[in-house]
Amino acid sequence: MSELEVQATLSRGERSRSRGRRVTPFEVLAVVVALFLLVAGLLPGLLAPGDPLGIDPAAAFQPPSPAHWFGTDESGRDIWTRVVHGAGTSLVIGFAATAIGLGVGLVLGTIAGMLGPAVDFSVNRLLEVLFAFPGLLLALLFILIFGPGVWTATVAVGLSASPGYARIIRGQLLAVRRSSFVEAATVLGRTRRQLLLRHILPNTLAPLFVLGTLGVGQAIVWASALSYLGLGAQPPAAEWGAMLSAGRTYLTTAWWMSFFPGLVIVLTAVAATVLGRAIERRARYA
């Protein structure tokens, strides 16, 4: 199982005990975080007008204050500004990696789920092999071959997530295929193509939206882990993982340098989880 599958399982569990459409305080918070990230990602200047790369050596290592809400880093750059401007990078990485993971997973999952037992067996063995790799290693090898950077990290995260997507998608395809309405359609003489397009895919795609939401959160955390190891975004880029990594050096003297970037990573991941579940729950009632 992959982390994604665990998350998806947990989200589905939400159905069993959900107590109606009432909006929980967690969900409100998650929406606020998501809105903040969107605004920060699209119009960072609105929240933080400064230059995320602008240095001011005279103002280095300042603790949080009204002038610098999150303090400043070793070159006097404002951490609040960098966190806000970093949202764009993180969102792009999150969405792109999820798109890659979903794309590859969709192709693998579909051919496994649709092309009969022989193909299904082969794809399953392939997935098993990929799962036996520690997730980090797959990304590590990919980055070493293609060199570190934001884009290789994004592709690496997407690819390492794809087996998880593939297996979920395959499972769902099989479940839908076996379901009564597809059987009915088969009896009615629909072609395989019609089956896939009109019945199976739409029923499989709805949960993909939930999966995607969860996936974006996870991809952001993974990408920041790679940046932390020095394999993703490169300094001085305002990327959360890279900022956190740079801040660890000054842990004992400037805790704010690593605390705030870490905090937004955690908040983003939590918001994605909560939102994914909220969507799942509502999809059930829709």
């Binding site: 602008g54 240095i55 070159s75 300094p235 740079a246 050096t249």
Partner: peptide, 18 residues
């Protein structure tokens, strides 16, 4: 990154900015 300590890497970033 093996040969330049973090402070030195930050110094290069400042050099880049100036």
């Amino acid at each position: 990154t093996n040969q330049s300590i973090p402070a030195e890497q930050s110094l290069f970033e400042q050099l880049q900015a100036t």
